[in-house]
Design a protein around this nucleic acid. Structure first.
Lengths: 332, 332
DNA sequence: TTGTACGCGTTATCAA
DNA sequence: TTGATAACGCGTACAA
């Protein structure tokens, strides 16, 4: 690999000048610039990004922590984040936290040890206190899908509560009154918020919530499977169920059908997230759109703006969910 | 951030000794080691991986190129690769090639400029010649899902042809004789191989292929949608269709049902890949398992063994597909 | 078993 | 507008 030194020799200029044309951050006479560019071309020169990093104490890399790398939800998130940074010549280093406190901390430590210029965190298990402490640590970060008081400007969140509200309201408007709810793990903030929204919609219609209509799942298929079973068992005349995410909705749909119910005639179901497979389901799932890709891009823009001084404005931190009407809700 | 220099001062030893205990690649007296470890602890020292890289001309990072970051297929691939490297203290840098020649080349250039120690490539658009040429370029790489003659030991592939064979054979064994085929883009190697396998199974049963039973799709949902429409239009008494991947199968299922067909009674469908949503479908999709996660891990092991000198054996380069029987095939 | 000294390929400061 | 030259933080011969 050719170095900046060889380029400078071939072009007959100094190291410094070559560096200047590479970064074009200082005036260089056009003729000189051309000479340098030519030399770089002839030698097939590419800057060594490691050396650049060491000298500039900047790695041009951004660390991302997500819960899982697979799964439809994080796939679109990562895809959009990667694209945004790639355009800017930055690269992402990705680590999986698996919703586990130890692993999340390990991931963050790992990324920091990689000298990331910034982090984008979708973490669920670590405490707010931990994050506040991390905040003192030098490496700046943005938080996805979670609101921490003292760093509100760096939290990109969905209005989860409103999403939960919309899901239930949609059912209510379609005439349903006996509505089951399959929740995510209540220790997760988004799960709690969605449920709160559900309760609010119910309250608006003067319906009181009953514990027999609630099931706490795991945000995975199995939670949906067990959830319908439990709900149907406890209260056979439920006409609709809202699932706090699409994966559980998938499990719910399958199980309900296996129990002999016609969907959506006998049971309406609405999901949450609008992941890519939700319209491969049968019936196609009515769900709440979670614009995760856009939120990822916004997090990326925050980093680009505040860490790399790009001139960007309109950093939006709160996103609104909306209903995606498909075929899994029956009007009664 | 504390540096190795401060540690050496505090511990009262030389830089070299500190380096030795960090990498523990040279004898250090136990007492000395303890002193150094203590000093590192007191200072909260963490090695600067960038400086390590520059000095050792090794980045401990592996570049991965996949077609898409989202989508169920690549998600599990990336997840397993990341986990494997993470355990070894390496990290991955991921880039999307989008099945486009220019983007694939750009991605590779980008990763090389990041000084990756090795690359794992799932590329479809670049030519074999390009890969052979890349092979001269210094950065070693492993190829996924593609066989290039002169570098066979570094190609981790699925026996796609056998997969195509199995899919059709399964249908044949269930009594189907009029079988449609929705292919991926024939310029893609795996699409071609799968189709060849299909033809071979047909031939074994003495059935000749008809062009009216073939449709070239795009490996996406839309291909399945258009595919069934075309196939059913051309030949109304088809009893089964094999789709060259699960996404197309999803589109096929939906469209067939919209055309009033009962599945699987009126039309059997088999997919390929066994992506995670294939059992969220209705009917649950019978498909061919593509052990993509395991193949990714194997690629990672190759890198660990050959680039990082880990003592690993049993590098398997050819994987075998198998039938996953679910509910989308009807026996006649 | 330990220390010295140089090199890795850049950036950045200061003069010129 | 350009050129010396000192960092950047660490690995690694080579010497002791």
């Amino acid at each position: 690999m050719a170095t900046i030194y060889e380029v400078s020799k071939l072009a007959g200029v100094s190291l410094a000048t070559v560096s200047r044309v590479i970064n074009n951050n200082a005036p260089v006479r056009q003729a000189t610039r051309v000479k340098v560019l030519d030399a770089m071309d002839k030698l097939g020169y590419h800057p060594n990004s490691i050396a650049q990093s060491l000298a500039s104490s900047r790695s041009n890399s951004i660390g991302i922590v997500v819960s899982e790398l697979n799964g439809p939800f994080f796939g679109t998130l990562l895809s959009d984040i990667e694209a945004a940074f790639r355009r800017a010549g930055k690269h992402v280093i990705i680590a999986a936290g698996h919703s586990d406190e130890r692993l999340e901390k390990e991931s963050i430590a790992f990324l920091k040890s990689r000298n990331c210029d910034a982090l984008i965190l979708h973490v669920e298990a670590v405490s707010d206190d931990y994050l506040r402490q991390l905040n003192e640590g030098g490496t700046p970060f943005v938080i996805l899908n979670r609101f921490v008081e003292s760093m509100s400007d760096r939290c990109v969140t969905l209005n989860n509560q409103h999403g939960g509200y919309l899901a239930t309201q949609h059912l209510l408007r379609n005439g349903h009154r006996k509505i089951g709810y399959i929740s995510g793990p209540m220790w997760k903030n988004d799960a709690e918020q969605r449920y709160l929204g559900h309760l609010r919609a119910l309250a608006e219609y003067g319906i009181e919530s009953k514990s027999s209509l609630f099931y706490e799942g795991d945000f995975h298929e199995l939670g949906g499977v067990k959830g319908v079973a439990a709900l149907l068992h406890a209260d056979a005349d439920i006409t609709a169920i809202v699932c706090a995410n699409d994966e559980m909705a998938a499990g719910a749909v399958t199980t309900a059908r296996e129990q002999g119910l016609r969907l959506p005639e006998d049971l309406s179901i609405v999901g949450f997230d609008n992941v890519n497979f939700s319209h491969y389901m049968y019936p196609k799932l009515t769900t709440i759109d979670y614009p995760i890709g856009g939120m990822g891009v916004m997090a990326a823009r925050w980093v680009l703006k505040h860490i790399y001084q790009q001139k960007l404005d309109n950093i939006q931190t709160v996103f609104e969910p909306r209903v995606i009407e498909r075929d899994s809700v029956h009007s009664i």
